[in-house]
Amino acid sequence: MHPESVRTGERVPHGGETNRDVLDFSANTNPSTPGGVEEAYEVALERSRRYPDDDYPDYRAAAAEFVGCEPERVIPTPGGLAAIRLAMEITLEPGDDALVLSPSFGEYAREVRLQGASPRFVPHDEILATEGSVLEDCALAVICTPNNPTGEAADPETLAAFAARCSEAGTTLLVDEAFLGFTDLPSAAGLDDDCVIVARSLTKLFGLPGLRAGFAVASGDRRDALETARRAWSLGTPAARVGAHCLRRDEFVRETRERVANERDRLHTALERRFDVAPSDAPFLLVDVGDRDVDDVIVSAREDGVAVRDATTFRGLDSHVRVAVKDRESNDRLLAALGVLEADGSEGDGTAEAADDETHE
Rank of each mutant, 00 (worst) to 15 (best):
S26P: 03
P34E: 10
I90G: 00
L208C: 02
S26W: 06
F182M: 09
E227Q: 13
D184E: 15
A164L: 07
L86E: 02
E152L: 13
E89F: 05
D344A: 14
E227N: 12
E258N: 10
S104V: 00
T237Y: 00
A44F: 01
E10F: 08
Y51I: 08
D293M: 11
E358F: 10
R49L: 13
Y56N: 00
N30F: 05
E136C: 07
R273L: 02
V37E: 01
D344G: 13
G345M: 05
E17I: 09
E65F: 02
P52N: 14
D250Y: 12
G80Q: 06
H360R: 15
P34Y: 05
R50A: 14
G95T: 06
D344R: 14
A244M: 14
C166L: 10
M1K: 03
H124W: 09
A337G: 00
C246Y: 05
V198E: 04
Y59H: 10
S26T: 12
I90Y: 04
L135V: 03
R259K: 11
P283C: 11
T130I: 01
C69R: 03
T29L: 06
T228D: 11
G190V: 07
P156Y: 09
L338W: 01
P71L: 09
V242I: 14
V321G: 04
E255M: 13
D125R: 14
L286A: 12
E107S: 14
A61M: 05
E39K: 13
D288C: 08
L185I: 05
G9T: 04
H268C: 05
Y59M: 08
L92V: 06
A161C: 10
Y51R: 15
G170C: 12
G170P: 06
T33L: 07
D125V: 00
I143M: 12
A270P: 00
P238F: 03
D293Y: 08
N262E: 15
W233A: 08
N30Q: 11
A307W: 03
G116N: 07
E361T: 14
G305T: 09
L173R: 10
L317M: 13
W233Q: 09
P57T: 05
A160L: 09
E93W: 06
D176F: 03
P149F: 01
A61E: 10
A307M: 12
V299E: 15
P103L: 07
E227F: 00
L286N: 04
P238C: 11
V67G: 03
A141Q: 05
H360V: 10
G220F: 11
Y41I: 09
T18Q: 13
N28W: 04
F252D: 07
R200G: 00
V198C: 08
